[in-house]
Write a protein that binds this DNA or RNA. Structure first.
Lengths: 107, 107
DNA sequence: TAAACCCATAGCCAGCGAGTTATTGAATTG
DNA sequence: CAATTCAATAACTCGCTGGCTATGGGTTTA
């Protein structure tokens, strides 16, 4: 199975999809209809995006009669931040190594 | 012009490109040849990826004779983390609003 | 129960982008 | 200066994906 941040990058790369996710973050629960009204694309397109977001763990759905509500799942962003911190960490380590080297050269 | 995180998501969505960036983070400076040796794709493909990473501000290049060295530019990741924090912030605000509402209902 | 409504799925199409090979320019080497 | 090497660009192919329309399944309303 792919690493967590893999699917997140792919999923959030699309502007429309990211806009839907942002709206869910700002406004909380939204029905597919409400999301469609603001997305500027057709309802099936919105549903497809929601499916992708759901499989990435970024949203969860809740069925209520004939309506389907979606909400953002914020913890899902953690692997993204974690990956960024990891990259920064590598840089920091290389910097530490250089410091050690200079320290040894100094002796 | 696009928001900073826009181009970052698009650029880092590709696994090959992200692998190149990760390698630059772990190993520091690398020539195009060295990167190509580990990428599993042709040199022109690597050069194209490096071009995309460069336009996103994620890497910088340095010319030294006929070699070109690339290095990661870690500060470029900040808008990504910033965006994630912003999303979390929206959620927090909505939670605060709910708290206020409950508090008012309590009185 | 017929009609209207909400959402998901199916099927199709067009554009984008990641890969290729071929080539060029520039720098080093013999 | 000829040959070689490094990297970028050009030109092309092809698969993926985001959009659409059409339809179906489930739910509420008249």
């Amino acid at each position: 199975m792919p690493l967590p941040h893999e699917i997140l990058f792919k999923t959030l790369a699309d502007p429309t999809r990211r806009a839907i996710f942002e709206r869910l973050c700002r406004e909380g629960d939204q029905t597919v209809g409400a999301l469609t009204a603001h997305a500027g694309i057709s309802q099936p397109a919105v549903s497809k995006h929601l499916g992708v977001l759901k499989r990435a763990g970024l949203v969860k759905d809740r069925h209520e009669g004939r309506l389907t509500h979606y909400r953002a799942e914020l913890g899902a962003l953690d692997p993204l931040v974690g990956w960024a911190k990891e990259m920064t960490g590598f840089w920091q380590n290389r910097f530490d190594d250089l410091e050690d080297l200079l320290k040894r050269m100094d002796q």
